[in-house]
Write a protein that binds this DNA or RNA. Structure first.
Ligand SMILES: [Mn+2]
Ligand SMILES: [Mn+2]
Ligand SMILES: [Zn+2]
Ligand SMILES: [Zn+2]
Lengths: 137, 137
DNA sequence: GCCTAAATGCAAGTTGTTTGCAATTAAAAA
DNA sequence: TTTTTAATTGCAAACAACTTGCATTTAGGC
């Protein structure tokens, strides 16, 4: 139950702890919601260059500290990928574009996984991995 | 089992049947695979303006004649949405980027839904619809 | 404190997609 | 069939998300 901090997330990884990385990670830990690069940029009052944010998001993804959540309106969303936040499905509202995290309790009625009155219009199921062509090499 | 034609797909819809729409729909019907705007543009030997292709893809989507399949590498993929091609999951290869359509037989082992040796690395499950905030208006 | 590789900011470049506008065209009206 | 007109097209420019090159700064080992 030890809470994540910018330092705890980066420790033992041979990654420089820069001022901007502390700020970015602080913001990521601070929000519970999925976020895009420009969400971050805005929430930081544009005090950091967008290119720096993009470079750090890529790095954090590679390290498995954050994960890609959803690609919507040609914009990539991410969320923290620590032990407190295991993988789970998401609900995307076709009207306001908000992204809701769904609880991932194993055997459970759908109703209990989102609070309130959600109307599901589409269910998107995608598999990613290695195809036979690419598997043999 | 009547096969789709550009005309049959557009009929009764108050949409002008232009030369370029026949060509685009012909190409879409011709290929079984998901395609992007630039896939189409290339396959038509650049004989049609990309803007026209984008405008028509948007229109066809709105009409439910095609559907969005996947947003990958910041590029949108589509496929024909006629009665011969009901909704189904897709497999995206993390290496070559190919998109495979999966058969959607109801009760079935996963093995039988894709031919060959596919390694699943990620399963993406997304719901889209209307959230409670947007539902009450 | 000094040194060096890594990280940053800035500006410019890419790529996918959209938009404004004048010219073309499908198809409804005459 | 010819005329009319609103929709569609092509072209060029605009946009938005993201990436890259490069000179400058900085974290962290010495
Ligand atoms: Mn989530
Ligand atoms: Mn398919
Ligand atoms: Zn909503
Ligand atoms: Zn492959």
């Amino acid at each position: 139950m030890d809470k994540c901090t910018p330092e705890s997330l980066l420790e033992g990884r041979n990654i420089k702890i820069t001022r901007q990385r502390q700020i970015v990670l602080g913001a990521i830990i601070g929000t519970g919601k999925p976020f895009s690069a420009s969400d971050l940029h805005d929430s930081l009052g544009s005090e950091m260059d967008l290119a720096t944010i993009y470079r750090n998001l890529e790095m954090l993804c590679g390290e498995g500290i954050i994960r890609q959540v959803m690609n919507e309106k040609e914009r990539q969303y991410y969320e923290l990928a620590c032990k407190h936040n295991p993988e789970h499905p998401h609900f995307y509202c076709n009207i306001c574009g908000k992204i809701y995290c769904m609880k991932q309790d194993k055997p459970m009625r759908l109703k209990s996984r989102l609070p309130g009155d959600f109307t599901v219009e589409q269910t998107v199921l995608q598999y990613r991995g290695i195809c036979p062509d690419c598997g043999k090499e």
